[in-house]
């Protein structure tokens, strides 16, 4: 994310897209410049296993739609996040499963060496399951905005560009999502959580 909001990068990206219309190879500038960031975001939402498919689909869609890319409307980075978000929507089941796993175990419960539930219960904060359930329970449009802020660290303006929604809508979706999470966090006293969890 070193080049987030970097105007020179934006100009270079837009120029690469323009040139790629005639010479497809120019698109590799876009791929190389943004793969890591998009991959990380998708892997966070869907898990590393599904991420490669989704990221490949994202760049393929971007490549096919490159003629319609409008630098006046969105930076290439925001545009790619928007496409990735749409592709992620088609994998809702994976996302729900991912959130269930994150809530229960934290990242990668299957790695040998970390099998015990103990590791999970103690090192992971006891609020994990509630937060994961709350994120899974959000409306998709609210979850998109929340995660573009929390994980991708996009600005409100970039999110508006990425999702093609008004600036004000970003704010209202984000505050609705945050309100719901706060409600979950506030309801539970972390001091009591471990005992509650053990009793069932």
């Amino acid at each position: 994310m070193a080049w987030a909001g970097n105007p020179r990068q934006e100009v270079e990206d837009a120029e690469a897209i323009r040139r790629s219309l005639d010479e497809a190879e120019w698109f590799s500038v876009i791929f190389d410049g943004h793969f890591a960031e998009i991959h990380r975001y998708v892997a966070q939402r869907l898990g590393p296993g599904s991420a490669e498919d989704v990221v490949a689909e994202t760049f393929l869609a971007a490549f096919r739609r490159r003629a319609r890319y409008d630098p006046a409307r969105a930076t290439v980075r925001a545009w790619l996040y928007g496409i990735a978000t749409n592709v992620i929507h088609r994998h809702r089941r994976v996302e729900v499963r991912m959130l269930r796993a994150l809530g229960r175990h934290g990242p990668d419960p299957d790695l040998p060496g970390h099998e015990e539930r103990v590791a999970v219960r103690v090192s992971a904060q006891s609020l994990r399951p509630s937060i994961a359930a709350a994120v899974a329970g959000l409306a998709q449009r609210d979850r998109d905005v929340l995660l573009l802020v929390a994980l991708a660290e996009l600005s409100h303006e970039e999110i508006a560009e990425a999702l093609g929604i008004p600036y004000g809508t970003v704010g209202s979706r984000l505050s609705r999502a945050r309100r719901k999470l706060r409600a979950v966090l506030g309801e539970r006293n972390p001091m009591l959580d471990r005992r509650e969890g053990e009793d069932g």
Binding site: P48, A51, G106, L127, L147, A150, L181
Partner: peptide, 18 residues
């Protein structure tokens, strides 16, 4: 809440060959 969400997701372990 945003910090909690970041913590929930953590850093994915990514294959450098991806």
């Amino acid at each position: 809440e945003l910090g909690r969400v970041r913590e929930l997701y953590g850093e994915p372990s990514l294959d450098p060959l991806a």
